[in-house]
Design a protein around this nucleic acid. Structure first.
Lengths: 341, 341
DNA sequence: TCCCCTATTGCAATCGATTGCAACAAGCCC
DNA sequence: GGGCTTGTTGCAATCGATTGCAATAGGGGA
């Protein structure tokens, strides 16, 4: 190996540089670096050593253009109904973390997009960019139409969210109506008669949960629950909830929150107003985020198995990339009783 | 426009398809779609209409290979010292959210990587992939050497973390020693005499905070603080902290936590043991995450202005991409007094 | 009428890799 | 010794866009 140039010489940037140095063609270098058995073991090792000595790494852009595989999955958060919602929303982040873990373990990179779907073709732009091998949507927002339209022709697409009858696109999610019912039934079993539901209904998941709550109330012969809007952006949420509580607290005796974040903020607001949870007002959340374990009191909630959901999304995506079909998954929500209700 | 083919005809996938349809060359189509004034206004509009009718979008991979600009920034989380830490750690997510917002506003895409730096050249692989216009590191972990090595030759790199004397790479962060001191001084002013510090010292930021706490204690003539290790992964954290507390609670009268997450968990554990915060044991956090507003009691903490830090990182990165120089930024931490201490 | 200038368009090289196919040598069998 | 297989390597097309330069046509001025 006396022919080694000093590594800092002039960085070898392309296959052609290495080829020149090694006195072979670029094709051979390409094959050698790929470990192909088509090239003589000796030359292969010589080329690999040369590449290592010169800190050479193949240009992924060129490679991916040629092979038509990018090794990148887009993880897209559509913020249709709630534009102020920040990417750092704990639910997004929890599922994003699981998705990123599963994808990197499988050798894929993650391209993260937070999209405000103003343009009608926002999703087309993403899937047709040529940059992605597949797309995972975190939530369907109010963009069912756009998603369906794209899914009809673009296979490697999986969304977190609901599966409606006749739906084309593959979705993974929980039965939100059932979850809402479970939450309300638990409150009712604890003696609650006048339920308040916190959360605004433009997001389909939240709306479904509310429907479940209403169904349970109706089934128990209770008055219709009081629905109170809440922004998901945390700055505004606290004031809104506090305002709702001061106004309506005398007319309700239990709270079903549309999400754990809403429930946490409600806990906070109730503490401010001197109300004890659960003795004065029981509160139940939805999601079962890790954070629910840290609240005081610990949050009673309806569990969506986010880790399992994320794994299922990635699994289905890979199946679809491989050309197979993959059905939607609807998981059953599960009551998690802790201390807040 | 009678020559329009039905949009669903056969999707036009390349510039050449559109060129054939329009009866011009690919060069003209490329220029037309770029809105270049070199092409006749009439043809330009005709081509644009044709492209729109056929749902055509340029292949970004090819475009980026040719132009040598990717429009993608890598956001990299190195997990050197704490491999179990999950991406969904609230601090990561908060800063990631701000970074993603700033980058997308500027037309860049975000490629997210969670890296366990086993291979010595983990960072080289990222910056030399040819896929990225720049790299943002969230934290330096225990990888100062690798970062310095790469930064010497790769300009568009900015890290969140500390700026040590003589450091080559551009970093944005807060003065952790000063922050630790501020936290301890606040506890001491509230009458605390035996401080416990929760957090393990392998991460340089946490270590610096602990040093600040020690300095303040020494300056006040108090005994050396008791340092207790805590994993950052939330599942283990709670049990560890609970164990620490049962063992040491009689020997301490105030707690400085290495991060807000640790502080939140501590609040939770103290509640379990029937201790009132702050009357029995004051607790102070570090970071000022949005979550601190939702705890009961509200968290007193040392603020790092994460939003400002993220903006600064992006700003500096853009300057460096443009070939300018950009100095490191060290922000002053700030005491935020709420209810827990 | 001729020439030059300008507006528009096409041609072809280029970005940096991958890969099917052809070419060549060596070795083997008959 | 000729023909065939096997093992290696090079050649050149290809992925899909961008862009400098050449080419063309038409208009205007002298």
């Amino acid at each position: 190996m006396s022919q080694d140039a000093p590594p800092s010489d002039r960085p070898a940037r392309t296959l052609a540089d290495i080829a020149r140095l090694a006195g072979v063609s670029t094709g051979t270098v390409s094959r050698a670096l790929a470990g192909s058995s088509l090239v003589n073991a000796e030359t292969r090792e010589r080329i690999q050593a040369l590449a290592a000595a010169h800190d050479f790494r193949v240009n992924q852009m060129a490679r991916r253009l040629r092979t038509q595989k990018t090794g990148v999955i887009g993880v897209v958060v559509p913020l249709g109904h709630e534009r102020r919602q920040h990417l750092s929303d704990p639910f997004f982040m929890t599922i994003l973390g699981h998705l990123a873990d599963a994808l990197t373990e499988n050798g894929y990179d993650v391209m993260l997009s937070r999209v405000i779907p103003d343009a009608a073709d926002w999703l087309e732009r993403i899937v047709d960019s040529g940059m992605l091998d597949g797309v995972l949507l975190i939530g369907q927002s109010d963009q069912m139409e756009a998603i369906e339209r794209v899914a009809r022709r673009y296979r490697p697409l999986v969304a977190w969210g609901s599966s409606l009858p006749g739906q084309v696109h593959c979705a993974v999610g929980t039965e939100n109506v059932a979850g809402g019912r479970i939450a309300a039934e638990h409150l009712i079993a604890r003696g609650v008669r006048r339920i308040a539901f916190l959360g605004e209904l433009r997001a389909p998941e939240i709306r479904a949960r509310f429907e479940g709550v209403c169904a349970a109330a109706a089934a128990a012969g209770l008055p219709a629950p009081l629905q109170l809007d809440t922004h998901l952006a945390s700055e505004m949420m606290e004031q809104e909830i506090a305002a709702h509580l001061t106004r309506h607290l005398d007319r309700i005796d239990g709270i079903a929150a549309g999400s754990d974040m809403i429930a946490m903020t409600t806990l906070r607001a109730l503490a401010d107003q001197g109300m004890a949870v659960p003795s004065d007002v029981p509160v139940i959340g939805y999601d079962d985020l890790p954070l629910g374990l840290q609240t005081v009191p610990r949050l009673t909630t309806v569990r969506q198995d986010i880790a399992r959901g994320a794994r299922a999304m990635v699994e289905r995506l890979f199946a679809r990339i491989a050309g197979q079909d993959a059905p939607s998954l609807v998981m059953a929500p599960e009551l998690v009783v802790r201390d807040s209700a």
